[in-house]
Nucleic acid binder design. Structure first.
Lengths: 192, 192
DNA sequence: GATATTGCTTGATCTGGGTCAAATTCTGTT
DNA sequence: AACAGAATTTGACCCAGATCAAGCAATATC
């Protein structure tokens, strides 16, 4: 791995596995995301494209030299990495403490929000999008089995939280309802 | 939160909570760790000292100005943040895919390793250290209940993987055995 | 020296999500 | 159109870990 890259279009996943094959997704790479570690010659994750993907690649050495000369790049990269760290920590809360139903609702709202920001749609109450992941990839994202994912998708559909056209095309009639199901704390509490 | 800081001595935890009180630890702050987000005026986590703690604090503004002038600082901070991100992702694998027993073994080996590196002890086969966390804090770290933590600690003790003097003082007679119990993949597989 | 308080252990029971297995769509492809 | 293979759903059953509850040990308080 002697290059770093930025995703232009398409979707890839970052996964880690235990030797017996148990797999956990640890990152979802969407357009504009950065891949690779300036300062490390090898990263510790499997990167798998789940769609056709176009990435803008830079050889590691020249990129690192440019980083030395252009302080702004390191600062920008730091901001992006801090954002990733925040996302990873929110994800940890999901993995450690949410129920299967809350996990599914959380994933759906993340994908919906991300999709809306790419398409620059206003934050409408109703949202329509395509799931870029198979049920198995969703399971690996959420620390569940694919059967549980399927059952909870059916349950959310039965309860009118989502509508499905085919297996991947999702309509959320009431985004607030979905966010409620996701169980996210909306206020802040006291923080540092 | 108008300062950033570095932990000098003592231990603190970073936690996130759901509104109904479910709590997940998302970071463990040990001596030399950095707290705070250059470029953000408020962070999104609860920080709780679990021991008396001594931190070296810097006002945010002067620190950020120094970062502007001294490119090396942003680069160093980027390296530290990338390390934190790696730790968070390993933790995600633990939360999503490991059994209770593997989770406990993983936590014990992390604390043992960290303790050894602070005391600069050689990587001996036998290790002795104090747990800096209550059973409840361990549960919040691992996404378990405190009862399950207690039961698995008893099980590891019964099986001779660890010895306990009191509730917090741990002896690991065979570190390799503990690492095996933790279920970590030691080889790499094919990676990017 | 009695009494809370906090941390921890252990037991009994329950249940959410896992496992195993069999349909049922959905893609292609020929 | 017929077939093959992958993706998904659904059902039946099971178990790891949660929940509820009691008891113990070590400090702290009076």
């Amino acid at each position: 791995m002697d290059f770093v890259a930025s995703v232009v279009s398409g979707i890839a996943t970052l996964t880690q596995t235990l030797e017996d094959g148990r797999t956990q997704m640890v990152g979802l790479l969407l357009p504009s995301d950065f891949v690779g570690r300036p300062g490390r010659n090898r990263a510790a994750y499997n990167v798998t494209a789940t769609t056709d993907i176009l990435m803008c690649c830079f050889r590691r050495k020249p990129f690192e030299e440019m980083m030395e000369r252009t302080p702004h790049i390191a600062q920008r990269l730091l901001q992006m990495t801090l954002d990733e760290l925040d996302a990873a920590r929110e994800w940890m809360l999901l993995l450690g403490r949410k129920t299967a139903r809350e996990k599914i609702a959380s994933l759906l709202s993340i994908v919906a929000r991300r999709d809306a920001s790419i398409n620059m749609s206003p934050s409408a109450r109703q949202m329509v999008f395509d799931l870029p992941l198979t049920r198995e990839a969703m399971a690996d994202y959420l620390g569940l089995t694919l059967e549980t994912v399927s059952r909870q998708m059916s349950a959310l559909k039965r309860d009118g939280v989502i509508e499905l056209q085919g297996k991947r095309h999702v309509t959320v009639p009431d985004m607030d309802r979905l966010l409620l199901e996701a169980g996210d704390d909306s206020d802040g509490g006291f923080l540092i």
